[in-house]
Design a protein around this nucleic acid. Sequence first.
DNA 1: GGGTGATCACTAGCTTGGCTAGCTAAATTT
DNA 2: AAATTTAGCTAGCCAAGCTAGTGATCACCC
Lengths: 182, 182
Amino acid sequence: MEHEPAPREADELSMLDPRVIDPRQEIVRRAGLDDRDVDQVVRVMQALRRWREADRRASEASRRYMRLGETDMRAIRYLIAAGHQGRAVTPGALAEHLQISTASTTKLLDRLVAGGHVLRRPHPSDRRSVVVEVTAETRNTARLTVGRRHARRFDVAARLSPAERDIVAGFLEDLASTADEE
Amino acid sequence: MEHEPAPREADELSMLDPRVIDPRQEIVRRAGLDDRDVDQVVRVMQALRRWREADRRASEASRRYMRLGETDMRAIRYLIAAGHQGRAVTPGALAEHLQISTASTTKLLDRLVAGGHVLRRPHPSDRRSVVVEVTAETRNTARLTVGRRHARRFDVAARLSPAERDIVAGFLEDLASTADEE
DNA sequence: GGGTGATCACTAGCTTGGCTAGCTAAATTT
DNA sequence: AAATTTAGCTAGCCAAGCTAGTGATCACCC
């Protein structure tokens, strides 16, 4: 088995280039760019894709390490963050955040309880309900694995100058709100 | 915080701030940053997360539109890209690309064939094998939905100056290779 | 207070999309 | 020509979603 770093990425690249996806070049014409500009923009978009893929792989690795599914990991991250802010989380709130049904959340919690990752405690004021808490051990493990990934990311951003950080942050914010449109 | 539109986002923010995730502040100390720097870097990372989330939602929307699962959509994108380069794709190659078993690929192709998205043709030179092709209609639909998303992204990058594009691309490339480390 | 509808988590049972194991036909190697 | 490898498929399992429906509790309104 060969660990191909290159062709994997290259395979889908054609869809990133507006000259390919949009044969009539409307996008390019509208933006008023020349070929050099287009190449540069494509480079940005390739980099964006590369990062997203790399990050996906990395977070998959830490999930594997903790033997958790994707949703399970999201749940734990959410619970840790909420706990950090002193907010109690009920199964219903968790379902809402994860955008899954409450039935699936019950099963999710059963899994996490069985794995020793969370506890169900009685809700202090509503006897129908429950408060979910992450165990100390899982919290620490998650902090270590997620934290390390974050630290590396952080270092990269830290190397930028303040002006560069503004440019990058502004670009990403624009991108995010554009993606959310419509 | 500031203009945060979604509490949804804010919920997980604490894990993005190294002052929270790393109480002993080793990350910050190592990078030699003051509080203002940290805020700025955190802003970059929040923006990065916001974009990733927004993009995830957007691509989910186009999957819903085409009534396809995540893997199914990836498969179609791959097939379209390959077709564009004149490369024939076999089920085996698709399995390799998607990183799923060949058995799952058979089922995947059954689904896609049933939905009228792809065709199985006999392989021209290997009678054990098969060539998979996307139907013209699905290709067009995919181009429209994926393409529109891309066009919007493209426009954002196009608004940057050439120098800014270099900064952004460089940053993202660093980020990607850092994420792949270890 | 006492009834009534809403809300909470949970259970039961289905569906989907992965997986491994094993098959047959064809290609390739010896 | 025989043996091995490779390609895709079938059979059957499992994990993690879903919808529908339940019982307990809450909140409101008379």
